[in-house]
Amino acid sequence: MVDHLSLFINSVFIGNILLAYFLGMCSFIAVSKNVETATGLGFAVIFVLTVTSPVNWLIYHGLLAPGALAWAGFPDLDLSFLKYITFIAVIAAIVQAVEMIIDRYSPLLYVTLGVFLPLIAVNCAILGTSLFMVERNYTFMESVIFGAGSGTGWMLAIVSMAAIRNKLKYADCPRGLEGFGITMIVAGLMAMTFMMFSGITL
């Protein structure tokens, strides 16, 4: 239990998927104009991550990992080179499901998220989390916690970025830096403050 808690804190703060690994930057920059939309996308990402990470774990350890197909009579088979394409397919399918659910229950959020909702499928944070999960040899339960933690960290970053950009409406940036330019600078400064946690071992 304590291990799981520290894994969660680790993935939210210390190894923040966005500000420590810089994954999922595109939608972070694009959808952080408004706090409500950012919160909606944040929850969608948390949900997708919490589902895809364990599903991919099952597929990887049940079918793809070296020796996983021993029950079918192929003890030497190593299909792990298929993990990229499989993971992407799983993620795309689950994102489709999420899209339908949001469309059904919150049409307003569906409209505001627009094209970025299907784009969760190619959000590097999602694939990155699954690949980290394989690389770090997490157990099934850990993969659930890790997915949820990464999603929470991503949401924390995008929501605070949205609030900052709300404040930046009053800023008076040099012309070349308006919009995305200043957002990238703010993202850099945020990453610098998140270095506060680097070095903590849990």
Partner: peptide, 19 residues
């Protein structure tokens, strides 16, 4: 890694002040 945390704590909370 860090002996003192005040500077980073204040900067970190500056990021979250608008939120």
């Amino acid at each position: 890694a860090f002996v003192e945390g005040t500077m980073l704590a204040i900067l970190f909370m500056n990021v979250f002040a608008p939120l």
